[in-house]
């Protein structure tokens, strides 16, 4: 076996430390008994207990979850349709343009996305009286629009890798286009759809900037709540909350990875 050079190993260690030490310290201090967030005062889980009794936190967390589930589901439906259109519909006018445009929300600064959506909602309210109040629905719509792009990209790459003659064979054997979609296409791309859903879910759960733009009074998502608390100084219960979010998000990412890796029809099952 070849010996790895010390340089490569230390570069690796430094790189990972750079990524994970901040997260680890948040988790570490969440078990701190002291009232001061950065002074160690012994092990305790009391901040987790206190979170449980805090209605504001629970409301924010519940709102975030509702938004995340709804927008991820909507984004998966719309993103899958977009992916299908981009890969399977044979050459239509402006297909290249559409392909490029679907990815633009991925690179657009969140501030711009948030601002433009806010302007849209405000003018909509003036024109048709909806949305009367900004909150759950506006944040959900905002999250759907940008996470849809992620789903479309994931689904598109899966579809492009799929042998198109599978669909043709099904059609040749008497399957009408809609049946073929249900019988063949969807079962084969569902891992990508699931991965896209989980991705959209985590993105929605994480988002602070866009939600801040399009939320109204009284509707705080969890990241918004954390951010507003931190402005008054970091308290240990925020550490505990952050630790829970980290746990939740990494579970989601892990699940997404497992699903894409072990889809049906993928070679290399172990």
């Amino acid at each position: 076996m070849k010996r790895r050079s010390a340089f490569v190993l230390s570069a690796l260690a430094f790189g990972y430390a750079f990524l994970y030490v901040p997260l680890a310290s948040v988790i570490f201090y969440s078990f701190n008994d002291s009232r001061l967030a950065t002074v160690w005062g012994g092990f305790s889980t009391r901040w987790y207990g206190e979170l449980w009794g805090n209605d504001q936190v629970l409301d924010a967390a519940f709102l975030s979850l509702r938004i995340a589930v709804t927008s991820a589901t909507l984004a998966t439906v719309l993103g899958t349709l977009a992916g299908l259109a981009l890969v399977r519909v044979t050459r239509f006018r402006g297909r290249t343009l559409f392909s490029a445009m679907i990815t633009s929300p991925l690179v657009m600064p969140e501030v711009i996305t948030g601002l433009s959506l806010l302007l849209l909602f405000v003018s909509l309210q003036q024109l048709v009286g909806w949305p009367a109040q900004r909150g759950f629905s506006t944040i959900t719509i905002a999250h759907t629009t940008f996470s849809m792009a992620y789903v479309a990209v994931v689904v598109r790459s899966r579809l492009a890798a799929m042998d198109q003659s599978l669909e043709e064979a099904a059609m040749d054997l008497g399957g009408r286009p809609l049946r073929v979609l249900v019988d063949i296409t969807l079962p084969l791309i569902y891992p990508a759809m699931l991965a896209g859903w989980l991705l959209a879910f985590t993105l929605s759960l994480d988002d602070l900037v866009i939600a801040s733009f399009v939320s109204g009074p009284g509707s705080n998502t969890l990241p918004m709540y954390i951010f507003s608390k931190v402005k008054l100084g970091v308290t240990p219960d925020i550490n505990a909350l952050a630790s829970l979010v980290i746990l939740f998000v990494s579970a989601g990412v892990l699940l997404a990875w497992l699903v894409t890796r072990r889809g049906p029809g993928q070679p290399g099952r172990t």
């Binding site: 042998d163 003659s165 599978l166 043709e168 064979a169 099904a170 040749d172 054997l173 063949i184 079962p187 084969l188 049906p264 029809g265």
Partner: peptide, 12 residues
Amino acid sequence: NMMFQSYAIFPH
């Protein structure tokens, strides 16, 4: 009916 070059057997 057609037999495809890739055989196009439904993997699932």
